[in-house]
Write a protein that binds this DNA or RNA. Structure first.
Lengths: 296, 296
DNA sequence: AGGACTGCTGCATTTTTTGCATCGCAGCTG
DNA sequence: CAGCTGCGATGCAAAAAATGCAGCAGTCCT
């Protein structure tokens, strides 16, 4: 879109911090870029950059404009996707911010299923904790968020929510392996392998422990669920993960036992997008598919 | 905004129905305009107009694009107004679609009050029935709607709602003039002067009459409340209007008596805007002022 | 059949944008 | 304090893009 090039230039200057650096990215001379910025500010009616001795920085007006630019670009993408849909073609790109639990099994499965039907749709998946996921949405850097226990904020519109039991995971040889359900206090007698504190599961477990007047003292704390699972599988410890992040069939060497609902309350997985935003067709359809999958 | 000129051109062609006519409006040659449209379709990736022997018409893709254009333009206006606000200036333009009842007293008063504080804000007020008002919002032709009994639709976001009694109005010498409240059936014994059927008051009265097993047989039906009021003042008939459309002090020659709540149910005045739309600062502040005024 | 529309296009002209070289300014460095 | 570096701004000529003019082919209506 030639007529929107000026927006790219503004963003480039914003990101690069100076016209001269942005000029390289934009494949244009610094002087030409400079004059386009000036011309834009002229007709926009106010400056959008502060001129500092070391470069350019967006002023408050520029920040407002930047948000408009992103909104506008995203809406144009939606139009494009809808137009493509008119001709029966579905192409496009879906950007998802999601909790790590969705990565090993759930999301790959859903994406494959979707792409089997619409091979021209591409995906970006970013691991985000619940705070970051929502920030991504606000900055138009993701279309969808799929997070466990989002920090409920005003700009998040929930498309689907589903309760997720917290599962204890352990070696198949573990003393507790045969149980159908566990209380948290039973787990506390074994080594604990816990996700790092920014994860929803950890937050829930901490809350429960606090209610029991206990303190969780993990032998290992990690932000990698992969490591968590491996440690639980091969050591004598107990790890935790929500249901959707597990696939018992894939790990016959392990046992997965739900923590009693009486212990861990809350615990929902949320699918949503930015409030008031119209999603591109591809993202919308994918969201519907995910919602259906979550419901079953 | 020079870089958005192409959008103006597209809209001009859409409205004019042909390139040659649009060329006059755009102050450009038909050939130049033609080539700009073609260039745009080229980079947009698909045609947006159907070429008919008698001119151009938007195709479905064009309709989608047009909506984006309007959204985009409106959001840019919001940014502009917010930027102006940053410098302490409040300027801008507020477009209101409202029921006729608001015209004689309420809106002029509110607009004057607002402009006393912010003289650089201008207004457009369009009389619209409840259907048209909402269509205006969808087409981004109004920022706010203030209507009696809107035909509730999905795209309408209510900012404020307030119950409005239906008032019977009559000459001060009328037999019913001294009453504190009236039942509708009492009114039916006199000449009825009714607003036309697209108005909310009329709809409510018809519903009530139907419930009573009666039929309203007006001696006069008009879409002008001015005429309604004059007829009620000088004849022996009874007219109807909602409370906000009246000012007893301005008409000492008339009497205004509320119809009993038991007769006329519903009857709310709604202030709202298009769902999911971010209003310009001026419109937002004005909406707040109106909401406050309605609440008192 | 002819007139009045339509959108489209080749070519010369005008307007706009770009690149280059250069200026002045501010901060950093030794 | 001098010297260096990186910054944005600007004058001027060259390159690129947009425009206007004139004319084409097609459709519709009388």
């Amino acid at each position: 879109m030639r007529h929107l090039l000026i927006y790219d230039m503004i963003e480039a200057v914003h990101r690069s911090g100076s016209i001269r650096k942005a000029a390289e990215v934009t494949h244009i001379t610094a002087s030409a870029l400079n004059r386009r910025i000036q011309a834009f500010e002229d007709e926009f009616g106010s400056e959008i950059f502060e001129r500092l001795p070391r470069g350019m920085r967006l002023n408050p007006a520029g920040e407002l404009l930047l948000h408009h630019i992103r909104l506008q670009r995203q809406d144009l993408a939606r139009v494009h996707s809808q137009v493509a849909d008119l001709s029966g073609i579905r192409r496009g790109h879906v950007r998802i911010a999601c909790s790590q639990a969705l990565l090993p099994y759930f999301l790959p499965r859903e994406i494959s299923k979707y792409r089997a039907e619409f091979p021209d749709v591409t995906f970006t998946v970013n691991v985000r904790d619940r705070i970051q996921a929502e920030r991504d949405l606000v900055n138009f850097e993701s279309d969808l968020a799929l997070v466990f226990e989002p920090a409920h904020m005003v700009d998040f519109e929930v498309l689907h929510a589903v309760r997720q039991p917290v599962m204890a995971m352990m070696s198949a040889a573990h003393p507790l392996a045969g149980r159908r359900s566990l209380r948290l206090r039973e787990c506390l007698e074994y080594d604990l392998v816990l996700p790092a504190s920014q994860f929803g599961v950890r937050v829930l477990l901490e809350q429960t422990a606090a209610r029991l007047g206990q303190k969780l003292e993990p032998v290992l704390e990690t932000d990698s669920f992969e490591m968590l699972q491996q440690l639980a599988a091969h050591g004598r410890g107990i790890g935790f993960q929500i249901l959707v992040g597990l696939d018992p069939l894939a790990r016959p060497d392990m046992a997965f036992v739900p923590i009693s609902e009486r212990d861990v309350t809350g615990g929902e997985l949320f699918l949503g997008h930015l409030k008031g935003r119209a999603l591109p067709v591809a993202a919308l359809k994918f969201a519907n598919q995910v919602a259906t999958a979550l419901a079953s």
